[in-house]
């Protein structure tokens, strides 16, 4: 079993329903190639580093999946390229099996009856997780006001979910990065002086 990850950008002006249909489309296309989708969720609307098709913002969607046979993902790749509603996509191979973050979105979007149930479950899940990850967010805001100010609330909530499992490690890393940043800057300065 090989594990892959595809991150793709969708036009930010699409409504939630349209995004859901795109999620279903992409998931359906991928299942033609005998893959098992593990994660498929919206990252949120983010500012693009450079404009793509005159769009300054984009809705990022992350999809992680496992593939049993050794067939190539070339067909899926070309399909993604030809899909006009997807601005850009990137597929990378994962070293290990990804952790399932939440209930797959595709199943809920396929069956309209289960939509409400699935969304309720998601809300419960996020509530539970948010309690655990409060400490992480506090430290983040303290250490990096600039970065957190730029982030959207949606994006932050996703990051909370992602980091909730590794809360203590994250805080340590934060402190370490602060120290090392200083060290790096000093190193730069010395370099310049030396030149």
């Amino acid at each position: 079993m090989r594990y892959y990850e595809t991150l793709y950008i969708v036009n930010p002006n699409f409504e939630d329903k349209k995004v859901e249909t795109i999620l279903a489309e992409v998931g359906g296309e991928l299942q033609k190639t005998k893959t098992k989708v593990i994660n498929h969720h919206v990252w949120g609307k983010k500012h693009l580093a450079y404009p793509i098709q005159k769009q300054k913002y984009g809705t990022f969607i992350l999809m992680q999946y496992g593939k049993e046979d050794a067939g190539s993902l070339l067909e899926f790749d070309t399909w993604m390229k030809l899909n006009t509603s997807i601005l850009r996509h990137l597929t990378t191979r994962l070293e290990s099996e990804p952790v399932q973050i939440e209930a797959p979105v595709i199943e809920s979007s396929k069956k309209s009856n289960e939509d409400s149930e699935a969304s309720n479950k998601k809300e419960k899940g996020t509530e539970e997780k948010s309690g655990e990850s409060e400490k992480v967010t506090e430290t983040q805001t303290e250490s990096s006001d600039e970065v957190s100010a730029e982030k959207d609330p949606v994006e932050e909530s996703i990051e909370e979910n992602a980091t909730s499992g590794e809360a203590p490690e994250e805080t340590q890393e934060q402190e370490d990065t602060a120290e090392t940043e200083e060290a790096d800057q000093d190193a730069e300065n010395t370099e310049k002086e030396a030149d």
């Binding site: 991150l7 950008i9 983010k46 693009l48 580093a49 450079y50 793509i52 984009g58 990137l90």
Partner: peptide
Amino acid sequence: RMICLMPF
């Protein structure tokens, strides 16, 4: 950079 998270 390719996926537009960082600038060229």
